[in-house]
C-alpha cells in the first residue's frame, strides 16, 4: 500500500506544471547506471558493512509525451557482515553473511526540466542471502515487493547518447529497509521512429 502511495505521489509530483513536449519522435533507449549504494537499516550489528555497489539497466520507451515507461533490472548490494570469534551458545565461530538484490521493475520517468527526470518504479526484488556460520553454508533467496524513486540529470553528448547522474531511493517491503544510491548514468537511444 505504501508503495502505491509513493508511486501515485511521485507521478503527481512529476505532473505539476509541466506541459507536453512538441517533439513527435518516439524512441527506445537504454540507461546504464553504476555507482555507490548505502543501505539504511535498524539492524544492530557493529560490524555491518552497509556500503556497496549499485548497478541498474533500464530499457525505456519514450513516446512524444513527457512520461516514459520501461523495465529495469540490475544489482544492488545491501549489506555484509564478517565477524571473527563471535560468541554463541554453541561456542565461538566466525560469522559471514551478505545480501544483494536484483530488481525486476516497471519504471516510469518524467522530464520535469530539460535535463532532469523524476522516476518511480515498482516490482519485485529478488533477494539473495549467503554466508557461513559454524562451517555451514548460509544460503537462501526470496522475493520482496518494493519500489524506488529517483531524480536524474543527463547531459547530451550527441543525438543519441547522454551521460549524467542519478540519485535513487529504494524501499524493500520484506526487509522494511531502504537504500540510497548515487549512480553515473549513460543513456543511449538505440531506436527511433
Amino acid at each position: 500500500m505504501q508503495i502505491l502511495k509513493i508511486i501515485i505521489a511521485t507521478v503527481a509530483i512529476s505532473s505539476i506544471g509541466i506541459s507536453q513536449i512538441d517533439d513527435k519522435t518516439y524512441s527506445l533507449s537504454t540507461e546504464l547506471g553504476v555507482g555507490y549504494s548505502r543501505y539504511f537499516t535498524t539492524m544492530d550489528y557493529d560490524d555491518l558493512n552497509q556500503n556497496g555497489f549499485s548497478g541498474t539497466v533500464k530499457v525505456m520507451w519514450n513516446p512524444e509525451h513527457l512520461l516514459s515507461i520501461g523495465l529495469e533490472t540490475g544489482y544492488q548490494y545491501l549489506y555484509s557482515l564478517d565477524v571473527s570469534d563471535y560468541s554463541t551458545e554453541f561456542g565461538n565461530t566466525n560469522v559471514k553473511a551478505s545480501m544483494y538484490t536484483v530488481p525486476v521493475f516497471i519504471v516510469f520517468s518524467m522530464k520535469v526540466l530539460p535535463n532532469i527526470k523524476l522516476s518511480a518504479g515498482s516490482g519485485v526484488y529478488l533477494l539473495f542471502n549467503s554466508g557461513e556460520l559454524f562451517g555451514d553454508e548460509l544460503s537462501s533467496n526470496q522475493i520482496s515487493i518494493g519500489a524506488h524513486m529517483g531524480i536524474s540529470y543527463t547531459y547530451p553528448i550527441n543525438n543519441s547518447m547522454a551521460i549524467g547522474g542519478e540519485l535513487l531511493y529504494s524501499y524493500f517491503s520484506k526487509l522494511q529497509d531502504q537504500t540510497v544510491a548515487i549512480q553515473f548514468l549513460f543513456v543511449y537511444d538505440f531506436f527511433r521512429y
Binding site: E89, L133, F134, S139, S140, Q176, D177
Partner: peptide
C-alpha cells in the same frame, strides 16, 4: 523468516533452509 515474527536479522528466507545453530544464533 519475516518481520511479523522476528526482528531484523542478517538472514532471511525459508526458515527450514538454515541449521539449528544458525537459527538460534542469528
Amino acid at each position: 523468516i519475516n518481520l511479523r515474527l522476528t526482528q531484523k536479522s542478517i538472514i532471511w528466507g525459508d526458515i527450514e533452509s538454515f541449521t539449528w545453530a544458525q537459527l538460534r544464533t542469528l
